[in-house]
Amino acid sequence: MNEMTQPPAATPSATEFDADPVPRLGWPVGVVSERLGIAAPTLRSWDRRHGVGPSLRTSGNHRRYTELDISRVRLMARLTAQGVPAQSAADSVLSMDAAAIVEHLESSPGPASGTPDSNRTIGARGAGGTGGAPALEDSAALVEAIVAAARALDPRTMAQLYRQVMRRSDVGRAWVEVFAPALRRVGDLWQEGRLGVQAEHLTSELLQSELRAVVRANRLRVAGSPVVLAGADDEQHHLPLLALEAELARNGVASLFLGPRVPAEALVSTLRETRPRAVFLWASLPRQRTEAFWQHLAVVDWPLEVVIGGPGWSEGIELPDGPVTLTRVADFTTAVRTLVSSPGGLSR
């Protein structure tokens, strides 16, 4: 019999963990095997090698699974089905409390294990770019899989997960639903001292490589006046810009990527030399409402749309009189739509 063929039982709630229906006896491995559709030898291997197994003992010293133990097994099966190595999956599962396990299981309903149903999880990647593709399912499980690979410092698995996500949907949805949450989770774990800085660096560096691969793969499709992509002069975060560059490339829009920490004078000089139709500026750190850059735009004598994104920008920014317009975008999808459809761009 296949190890993972039976549909999983309904995910228990946090209260069910507290009210275990058999608190004294628990569930034997055979019952758990039938309940989850996972072969008993696999369950015993996960217990012996990775510590994901029964936590109760009977008076006769027989080990039994609690409801929480069963949910740990279910989540481990889901992670390994996503391609996460067993030890990495176990480390991730064992680091969670009951509430976190429930949250992950309920936020990504589907088979507990086995090969993911491609008809259910793979979204359309039509020519419509960020519009029309269904949202990624199992996004919480994919985030957890990336975090587990970061814990294990496993670049091969992490790169495979990044590519898998981008095959399922466009870069925009991949960024919003999986990549950005995974980066935040890894960053939080690092700040809490539960993950080394090397794991954070590996996570971001590999994602940069995969996003740039998307740009290279679409290089022959891009055309027209380029959009300038830059971070504010003291902004260090540039992964959102890379994701934006990749999604614009998928939409056939040329871009000039300047990256983070671009001095205002250098940015204005670039604008004068290239005369783009639009420039996107990213800021996650707080910015002043009145900055020298805005006044430098007085030298612009052609229609230029300045698009600003990120939580750092202040309200009430004033531009000098002239052909420059200012557009503030609240999210990634809106940024892509604005830059694709801005004057001189490609209409979709």
Rank of each mutant, 00 (worst) to 15 (best):
S342T: 13
A292I: 11
F257K: 00
A124R: 10
S118T: 11
L25C: 14
L79G: 07
L220C: 09
S341K: 15
V222M: 08
G83F: 00
A9R: 14
M96F: 12
S113I: 11
Q295I: 05
D234W: 03
A254N: 09
L161T: 10
R44G: 08
E103G: 09
W282A: 13
A148G: 03
L56A: 03
G114F: 01
A99P: 03
L36V: 09
S59L: 10
G259Y: 02
A223P: 03
V222C: 07
V29E: 09
V329W: 04
L207P: 03
D91H: 13
T11N: 14
M166I: 13
P276E: 05
L195T: 05
A141W: 03
V143W: 06
A127P: 14
H237I: 06
R261C: 12
T15D: 14
S204Q: 01
A86T: 12
N251E: 11
N218E: 14
I38A: 10
P12C: 03
V32E: 02
A230L: 01
G132Y: 10
Q295T: 15
G131L: 15
T5D: 15
V340W: 07
V22M: 12
E247C: 09
R151H: 15
M4E: 02
G345E: 00
V324T: 15
L206F: 05
D170N: 13
S139C: 03
G231D: 03
T11H: 10
E67D: 08
P116Q: 05
E200Q: 09
F293E: 06
L304M: 07
R250A: 15
R185S: 10
A10Y: 00
T333K: 07
V279N: 08
D97T: 04
L75H: 08
V178D: 04
R348W: 11
L202I: 05
S347H: 14
F280A: 04
A9E: 14
H50E: 10
V22D: 14
W190S: 09
V52F: 00
E106N: 07
R289G: 07
L206R: 11
Y65H: 07
G26M: 06
R277K: 12
V340I: 02
L75M: 08
E144H: 08
Q87M: 04
N2E: 15
M1R: 15
R184I: 14
P343C: 06
A213D: 01
E247Q: 10
P41S: 05
A40M: 04
L319R: 08
H50K: 02
G129V: 12
A99F: 14
L319I: 03
P260R: 08
I101C: 01
A330T: 14
L297T: 05
R78V: 08
V186W: 03
G252M: 00
S13W: 04
L242V: 09
G129A: 08
I38W: 00
L142W: 11
